[in-house]
Design a protein around this nucleic acid. Structure first.
Length: 165
DNA sequence: GCCAACGTTGGC
DNA sequence: GCCAACGTTGGC
């Protein structure tokens, strides 16, 4: 008898600009949950569509702000589905080409806030930590708004943040 | 505001 | 398919 092993939980980092949508905004959303829409990069779209699984956990990272930092943890509560904001003329994420086709090629997932770090982990601190060398976020020219996180790095950062889930 | 590092676009 | 021009991201 063979038994199918459940897939290991995936770990990710998702960037957001706090002046637009912060971790606290996520926590304040109904059910602490929001669709992570507006992604308009094919590499990221493919990850959201093909690799994100229910129960995967994500670091919420604040970018384009005074102190770029990982500020908390979320969990995927709905797997990839069409991001219809691309077809909504009133959305900041409207995509005229998608609208012309009448079909959105973009994908979003639902993210639920799980916990905010007591102590934010600044980009500066991540760079200083030898255990995190090679982390995607720290690579020169890394711009993807969604990135995989190694399990070891995930655990290490959680311990830095002293967050118990 | 600067600019490096990409990604996308579109003419050829 | 090539590649120059342009746009975007995001730290600093």
């Amino acid at each position: 008898m063979t038994r199918v092993q459940p897939a290991a939980r995936g770990f990710w980092l998702m960037k957001t600009e706090p002046h637009t949508f912060s971790y606290d905004d996520l926590h304040a959303a109904p059910g602490h949950t929001t669709p992570w829409d507006g992604v308009r990069n094919y590499q990221v779209r493919n990850m959201l569509r093909d690799d994100f699984r229910l129960g995967d956990q994500v670091f919420i990272y604040h970018s384009s702000c005074q102190m770029p930092a990982i500020v908390g943890v979320g969990v995927i509560v709905r797997e990839g589905y069409p991001d219809l904001s691309a077809l909504d003329i009133n959305s900041p994420y409207f995509d005229d080409r998608a609208a012309l086709k009448g079909e959105s090629p973009w994908v979003c997932v639902d993210v639920k806030a799980l916990g905010r770090f007591d102590r934010q982990i600044a980009l500066q601190d991540l760079r200083l930590d030898p255990e995190l060398a090679g982390m995607h976020l720290l690579r020169k020219g890394s711009r993807l708004s969604v990135q995989p996180v190694e399990a070891a790095a995930w655990r290490h950062i959680l311990s830095m943040a002293e967050l118990r889930l």
